[in-house]
Design a protein around this nucleic acid. Structure first.
Length: 408
RNA sequence: CGGAGUGUAGUUCAGAGGCUAGAACGCAGCGUUCGGGACGCUGAGGUCGGCGGUUCAAGUCCGCCCACUCCGACCA
């Protein structure tokens, strides 16, 4: 991609932001706010989001979850059946200009359960795991922190149906492992699996996946020596019950959340199956969410410095940020375009800053702000070679094309 | 939803009753530059958030509304 053609330019300064990720993503041209809590994703942002989704899809598929696509417009009747039309305070309600009323889906139990009901007849149809990745709508009283808490946001939600509790528990553990893999691939090393309440959703406990950062909204009580962590809302310990260490308290962002739903939704929609013993039973259901857009914001919240974003390799919009300097010199221009061509022919993702009327300093600053992992420079200084620098490292090397290919 | 704040050029802001509303950055053109946000000249760009009121005269004062931001409460 030629930077000169890229839609969405960097900005020197912006106002009205309250989190680092909001500031950097806006400034670097990844997102743009259209209204409070509502964002547009520009080309760079869309690439990152798609990469996150690709990572999630792969892990979902390996735990035998199948992808579907469900609508965001939900007929009112579905939400009345679960008694949530009036009890979910963040529910967007829409009136059709004719007669019908709809909910803008904040979650999808109300559609996945009737859908599953159409195909689950026997214990042989279980377990079943379905997921999708769509926009969710929540009428938050107050949106904040950019894409960390929006009114419309991206979410992967997975729902599983099981013949009994034991089978659910088994799958629940599988999902935990898959989630940890996803977050690790996305560059989040420190994830706290946290016990939390199920909210108004279920009386059972749930588990949150939290990333500790001052930008977070939940208060986490956790042990530094072991895995123990609880949401403050249910915590009642000062010392770790496992290793007796003093517990710490810090802000955290919840990037994922998983629930044991029991049979509540299957009962609401009268979804039953015939078990081996010939008796009708309600499947036990689990649900598992990852906020994809919130995850993107969280990654930036964790991976940045005073100059800009530092994208983890797997989800960076491009692998290489190539900068051409002295481009009015024919030879240098030729060299840099040749390098761009040779790299892209090898299917390496390159963002090429080919602007001719911009100073070197501006190009460097833009590269640091955008945060692509590897920066290459072709200039009159480099001759036939290439300057190589990683975004997260100050070391600069002058290398040949072959050496470059070995490195990446 | 309570409290506070802010709305003027694409962006960040100045202007606090008076003539044709300004700056910086950005954008367009020309020229000089070219390794950490270069420089000169020229130019385009504004119903001053909206509606109503006071006044000879309103970005400027008053009222209502809207939007955005922050603090709090809330949070499948």
């Amino acid at each position: 991609m030629f930077y000169s053609k890229l839609f969405g330019k960097t900005k020197k300064e912006i106002k009205n932001y309250d989190s680092i990720s909001h500031k950097l993503l806006t400034q670097a041209g990844f997102i743009d706010q259209i209204a409070s809590g509502i964002f547009e994703y520009l080309p760079l942002g869309k690439i990152v989001l798609s990469k996150i989704e690709t990572i999630i899809r792969k892990e979902m598929n390996t735990i035998d979850a199948q992808e579907v696509l469900m609508p965001s417009l939900h007929p009112k009747i579905l939400w009345e059946k679960t008694n949530r039309w009036n009890s979910v305070d963040v529910l967007f309600k829409i009136k059709s200009q004719w007669a019908n009323e709809y909910a803008l889906a904040p979650t999808h139990e109300e559609t996945i359960t009737p859908l599953a009901k159409k195909f689950i007849k026997s214990y042989k149809d279980l377990p079943l795991a379905l997921y999708h990745i769509t926009a969710k709508f929540r009428d938050e009283k107050r949106a904040k922190s950019g894409i960390l808490r929006g009114r419309e946001f991206g979410m992967k939600d997975l729902y599983s149906f099981h013949k009994d509790k034991k089978d659910l528990e088994n799958y629940y553990q599988k999902v935990i492992k898959a989630y940890l893999k996803i977050f690790k691939k996305c560059g989040l090393k420190e994830i706290k699996i946290t016990e939390a309440s199920g909210g108004s959703f279920t009386k059972k406990f749930s588990h949150e996946f939290n990333v500790i950062t001052p930008a977070g909204e939940v208060n986490l009580i956790y042990c530094e020596k072991c895995e123990f962590a609880q949401n403050e809302e249910i915590a009642n310990n000062n010392v770790c019950p496992k290793c007796k260490n003093n517990l710490k308290k810090n802000k955290a962002i919840e990037v994922g959340n998983i629930f044991d739903l029991g049979t509540r939704f299957c009962e609401a929609f009268d979804l039953k199956f015939i078990d081996k013993d010939g008796k009708e039973k309600y499947p036990v259901m689990g649900c598992y969410g990852i906020g994809t857009t919130r995850l993107m914001g969280t990654i930036v919240e964790i991976n940045n410095d005073e100059k800009g974003i530092i994208w983890p390799e797997n989800i960076a919009p491009y692998k290489i940020h190539l900068i051409g300097l002295d481009l009015k010199d024919k030879n240098i221009r030729q060299n840099s375009y040749n390098l761009y061509k040779k790299l892209t022919e090898k299917n390496i993702e390159v963002l090429f800053d080919n602007r001719e009327d911009v100073s070197a300093g501006e190009k460097f600053n833009d590269a640091d702000l955008i945060g692509i992992p590897i920066r290459l420079i072709i200039s009159k200084k480099t001759g036939d070679k290439i300057e190589y620098k990683k975004r997260n490292n100050k070391e600069i090397k002058i290398i040949s094309f072959d050496e470059l290919i070995n490195k990446i």
